[in-house]
Design a protein around this nucleic acid. Structure first.
Lengths: 246, 246
DNA sequence: TTATATTAATATGTCAGACATATATAAGTC
DNA sequence: GACTTATATATGTCTGACATATTAATATAA
């Protein structure tokens, strides 16, 4: 009698052409075959190389575009270009979540404060001399130009988070900060007390230089609390003027 | 003489058909016109309603698919279905970032520990009676089934984060936990000391019930540290066997 | 010579139509 | 009743034609 053996048969999983395109290109982007700024082959070239139709290629590329991995430029010298993989990729998703669950400004700011204070503490412990130098360059520049201060403010908070040496926390903090700036972009630097902010920034720098986590946390809290109060005040005023509810 | 006035002319920004489709549907999804599980109109219907070709509709839908907002099912009774908007939308992006910057397991686990401990503290202060009841139901069930414990473990950590009453932190913690489970899915519940874990969970519950933030943090740290050590041990063993580097 | 049109080249964007495939339901057949 | 077949309805794929955007090269006019 014939013995029947049944090895574990995995069902054949059909792959669609457009999925093949997007998966393949995603793999190449994540693994570094294509880097930020690189141009992907044109649609026609991809058709020929991958052996699928132009519409399949286009659908695959749209998936990558929706995921924030590439951007499209029309025209001669145009094409598909690989985006820098950074916190922007989460910002969009986080934005969707918070919008649809209408999380408040308070919750967003609270989350930022908690995580950014931790990164400040960690920065005091883990910072390198290079980080410290970069911070000093920013803090030392006692500018009075609002635009320049805006940029410097962004950079300082960025490098403090970076100095924590934890990339996961770094990208989360970046995403939260970007989301706050984007959502409340009507708040200009006009309203900010630059003198106070510069002093705060210097205190943060000093604490991190002295490897003093408690002091770093305190200085960061003080900076963020000032922003929070200012933002709340401005948001309240706008609501009064409009007569709307948040 | 005629006075020339120049108001701020915003340049006309061309909208592509596929962008029109994706933006419109995204707006409807985020604002709740379509809810999780709902089926979008078929491609043909969208063509007619929006006055664009089928390929434009398909490209727009692929963008939404890439962003994680919808999923596609082929066949009769198939179509496009709206996904639940939850932490999954960030998980994918976070995964891409960490893969391409090869962040380590240590960093991922550290970030989770820090944020989840904060949510445990906040849970002790902000929990409602309903949250407490749900926790008790999970903690009380002294099962020995590994599968059931796995599920209960997930649920308890979820509801603790939810009790913090901060949705931003909740979704971030969820995303980090999902990413850890997904990336290290080769670690089965077989290896876990369920007795210890159940005791830990009970300690977390008790602290939150007693509105004791310090105790809640301590219990959460103890739980997560046990996981961390176990994971590291198993990862180390696998690397030895394979002779690979992480 | 310089400024301005015109043209060409190259990439993506849009459209229409035909056919393939997947899947659930209904109808037919043994 | 169990199995097969047909059909209806979605999405998936392919082809070909033409539109549009953009840059670069060329021709033309002041």
């Amino acid at each position: 009698m014939i013995k029947k053996v049944k090895p574990p048969f995995k069902p054949f999983k059909k792959t669609y052409a457009h999925n093949y395109v997007s998966e393949l290109l995603k793999e190449y982007i994540v693994s570094g075959v294509y880097n930020a700024g690189d141009q992907l082959p044109s649609e026609i070239d991809l058709c020929q190389d991958l052996g699928v139709s132009r519409s399949a290629v286009r659908e695959g590329l749209r998936e990558l575009e929706g995921a924030g991995l590439i951007k499209t430029v029309q025209g001669s010298k145009g094409g598909r270009f690989v985006n820098k993989i950074n916190s922007d990729i989460i910002v969009h998703g986080l934005d969707l979540i918070l919008k649809s669950r209408n999380a408040s400004f308070e919750q967003l700011m609270e989350a930022r404060k908690i995580i950014e204070c931790v990164t400040a503490q960690m920065a005091a412990l883990n910072r390198t001399e290079e980080h410290l130098e970069a911070m000093l360059k920013i803090v030392d520049l006692r500018t009075k130009s609002k635009e320049e201060f805006y940029k410097k403010n962004y950079e300082l908070h960025e490098i403090v988070a970076l100095s924590s040496q934890n990339m996961v926390l770094f990208y989360i903090v970046q995403a939260l900060r970007k989301l706050i700036f984007r959502t409340y972009s009507f708040i200009t630097m006009e309203e900010i007390d630059i003198e106070r902010a510069i002093e705060c920034h210097y205190a943060i720098y000093k604490a991190i230089k002295n490897r003093d986590p408690e002091e770093a946390e305190k200085a960061m809290i003080s900076d963020l609390e000032a922003y929070r109060k200012l933002y709340l005040e401005i948001i309240r005023k706008r609501l009064e003027k409009k007569g709307n509810k948040l």
